[in-house]
Amino acid sequence: MIRKLLAILMISCATPVGAQNFTTAGEVRPILDMTRGSWVAIRDYGGKDLIYFTHLLAWRCGLREIRYGLNGAAPSIAFKMEPCHEGSAQPNALSGDDVYVTQPAGSVTEVQVKLIYDDGSSEEARFARDAILIQ
């Protein structure tokens, strides 16, 4: 994992400033591969389970869609993403606060996520509640 990160940093440093905005599958896939454990998080807050997609949304410009399923269900529910801000200095910046979905407190035991990249490829990951629970 460290080698992949170093390779990305070396490529980024060798690329002229502004030439790489991390807006394509080829640019975001290596980052999402290395940070798979951070794709989603669960927070028990205000009597609800909040399932956060913030990390994925920060790299959404290389994604066509984020799908999820809960408690063993296939990832068939599309998470609504705000559009990429192409043409701006920070195309991946989030302008809204729609970064989570809510469920009844303690009801989410597992989250399955499917990413569909802008090149049509996809990958999935499954996360147990205890592995992604934050305070």
Rank of each mutant, 00 (worst) to 15 (best):
P16K: 03
L133S: 12
I77N: 06
H55T: 09
A73S: 11
A105Q: 10
G87I: 01
E123L: 11
P16H: 00
T102Y: 08
I132C: 08
R126K: 11
G96W: 08
N92C: 09
R129T: 12
A74L: 09
D97M: 13
I2F: 13
A58E: 15
M81Q: 15
F22E: 00
V17W: 00
D119K: 05
I11P: 14
Y68N: 00
E124I: 03
Q90D: 13
L6N: 03
R64H: 10
D119G: 03
G120P: 00
K80R: 13
I8H: 00
R36L: 13
D33P: 00
Y45L: 14
I134D: 07
I66V: 12
G26T: 04
Y45V: 15
C13W: 09
Y117V: 08
E86S: 03
W59M: 02
Q20W: 06
F79S: 00
W39S: 01
I42Q: 03
D119T: 07
C61K: 01
A73N: 15
G46M: 09
S95G: 10
G37Y: 06
Y117L: 13
E110R: 12
I2S: 12
R43S: 08
V17C: 03
D130T: 15
P91T: 04
A89D: 12
C61Y: 01
D49V: 14
A19V: 14
I134G: 04
R43D: 04
C13F: 12
T35V: 15
M1E: 04
G69D: 03
F79L: 05
T102D: 05
G96S: 08
I51T: 15
E124F: 10
V40H: 06
P91N: 10
D98I: 07
V99F: 03
